[in-house]
């Protein structure tokens, strides 16, 4: 016998003057291999077509469907209902601006982050279409990719104590981004340049070390190590600056 699942879903449509934030209950019969992707789409198609949520790849690759699932930020597409109790509470990710119901605006947040961290390779070199590519150690390539696996779902930001308290905190996703360029031999920025971006309370020194970011990261990025790595680097850079080196 399959279970009857009870969903408590946050509802609010900011574009509707009559709408008030509230929780709404939906009941759905569980099917084999049901994920929250299947469940939410069924609720929308069969029960309430106005229900807002975001999915894109539905394969854990794109990071669209971050939401708070029974109190914990995660990707809805790879959450199986059979791993959850019969009562499931879904809330939108905090920190990000609410679009409606379970949908939030991660796009604007991350785009601003690219600008703040100057999330691109800084180099004086021009591309020469005639020349062979510049060589790179495969180990470096693999290390860069390891950090580039971030899907910008926003779970680490939503779970971050500092980000919840202050809007200007860069958060683990941004700090990880800086680390990605710091280890890239193609990027000619110096540690001093990076210090300008993250050597403050909005950056690496704002981190309280609670490390929920790593706990909730659906891609299992080594965020704790990266935060430690940056804190050491920037700490040393800070001392050098103090002593005029």
């Amino acid at each position: 016998m399959s279970r009857l699942l009870k969903f408590n879903i946050f509802r609010y449509n900011p574009e509707d003057a009559q709408s008030e934030p509230h929780m709404q209950e939906f009941v759905l019969e569980e099917t084999d291999a049901m994920t929250l992707f299947i469940a939410l789409n069924r609720i929308r198609e069969e029960q309430d077509p106005s229900l807002q949520f975001d999915f894109c790849c539905r394969a854990g690759i794109c990071g669209s469907c971050g939401m708070v699932i029974n109190g914990r930020p995660g990707l809805a597409c790879h959450t199986k209902t059979k791993d959850l109790p019969g009562e499931i509470t879904l809330l939108p990710l905090p920190v990000f601006k609410l679009v409606g119901d379970l949908s939030v605006d991660t796009g604007s947040w991350f785009r601003e982050m690219y600008t703040k961290t100057e999330s691109w390779i800084h180099t004086e070199k021009e591309f020469d279409p005639e020349a062979l590519e510049e060589r790179m150690d495969n180990k470096d390539a693999v290390s860069i990719y390891e950090l580039e696996r971030c899907v910008e779902c926003g779970c680490c930001i939503a779970a971050c104590g500092t980000a919840r308290m202050r809007d200007d905190f860069l958060g683990a996703a941004a700090l990880n981004r800086v680390a990605r360029f710091l280890i890239d031999p193609r990027d000619q920025r110096s540690e001093k340049d990076y210090y300008e971006i993250i050597g403050n309370d909005m950056g690496i020194f704002g981190c309280m070390g609670l490390l929920a970011c790593e706990d909730v990261c659906p891609k299992h990025l080594p965020l704790q190590n990266q935060l430690g790595f940056l804190r050491r680097k920037m700490g040393i850079t800070s001392l050098k600056r103090l002593f005029g080196k």
Partner: peptide, 18 residues
Amino acid sequence: PIEMRRLAHWGVPWNRVV
């Protein structure tokens, strides 16, 4: 081939020959 090299210049961490 030129486009792959351009992407490498822009920052793609292509796997490399070991």
